[in-house]
Amino acid sequence: MRGFWATYLRELLLLKERFFRVLLSFSINPLLFILAFGLGLGKDITISGRSYLEFLVPGLVAGSSMLQAFAINVEINVARFYLKVFEEFQSSPISPAGYVLGEVFSGITRAFISTLLILTIAHIVGDIDLKIDPLFFLITFLNAFIFASLGVASAMTIKTHADQTLITNFIITPMMFLGGTFFPIENLPEFLQPLIKFLPLTIVAQSLRELSWGYTINYEPIFILLILSVIAYMIAIYTVKRAKD
């Protein structure tokens, strides 16, 4: 795991440098979603006997933690193509596994900042009662782990900044909208449901929703997320090893 601390500390120092800008930018989207969908459009909507806001907030946590964890690919791209700091890492005696873990933890940190912001905003403007327990954070952690690993893998695979936008537009954005974040997946056409049901984000959104509504969940989703985390991490390591001229 040599290289973990150097990689993680670098990202933390950069995050510290831009902390207020990061807080602002992480707050805008959830605030708009909560105001527009939760309090505006969804004011009179109830789902499974709960207000729409109570349905929305766990989904937003799932979606935003995914987005923010995956967004480390932008930082890695800047380090790789613009600043070329990545070469400093490549020429040092660190292990790809340590480097990936450092970047993944940076993604997880961003995901948790975003999660805490959403819960705070929802609490202040929405007046809702959600049950947040350690399992809620464990699932958020695994969600962020998977997507931060995929963020590293995508950053190592692409050749230009433009390619990165394509990946985000074609994979991450559709998942954000279709993965049970804003509406129950049962409302989708039947032929789409089997596919959507097994998206990691759907599993995370449903689990977070059940937990925050006070239900217990079985260990199956956690087990699936753990397996996906290991697979995504291995893919990320493989792509880092291959990222040479």
Binding site: R10, L13, L14, E17, R18, L83, K84, V85, E87, E88
Partner: peptide, 8 residues
């Protein structure tokens, strides 16, 4: 090329 972290 100067591959330093400019913000640090």
């Amino acid at each position: 090329h100067i591959n330093l972290d400019m913000e640090l």
